[in-house]
Amino acid sequence: MSFDLEIDHRIGDRPIRLRAQAGAGLTALFGPSGAGKTSILNMVAGIVTPDWGRITVAGETLFDSSAAINLPAAQRQAGYVFQDGRLFPHMRVRANLLYGRHGDAPLSFDAIIDFLGIGHLLDRWPATLSGGEAQRVAIGRALLSGPRFLLLDEPLSSLDPARREEISTVIERMKRDLAMPILYVSHDRAEVERLADHIIPL
């Protein structure tokens, strides 16, 4: 199993309840805004601690409330691409890419730069990037951190149609070339049908 999730969590008076298993490839968490999709990604990444449950990714248990296991976010090796990019504004693109650099990265720095077509952006500040450029840098930063799995939070939602196509292609290539479990959040049916191998409705 790529993802084996059993989560009960309450944010304010909104309960989030999830029981799901998914095999290799890209798994889409699909549902309307406000269904708690991003919260689930945050729990898998270790940024939010679920009230109760168990989170296993690619055979490793990251969280288990009954066994008191809760791996810190820094040790989970999640390649998290946030919806808003979250590039560090005080570092140039190159420093952003290298921030989490890890020997386990699936591709070398040069290969990832090439793969994402961001070689010409290395000396730029994040504030000067377009939405599509920032998203590609964010993907590159996540890949260079040597992730065991990828978490993609609506990576297309803030982009115009041309950029959507561009990033969709990048995601399809990652799926094909990296053979890494991917958990993908979206509220767009067409997007999910195009990219997902498994769908978890919320």
Partner: peptide, 14 residues
Amino acid sequence: DRRLEQAAQTLGAK
């Protein structure tokens, strides 16, 4: 922005 600190954590920063 605390979310930048979270992003750094997910990148393996202690």
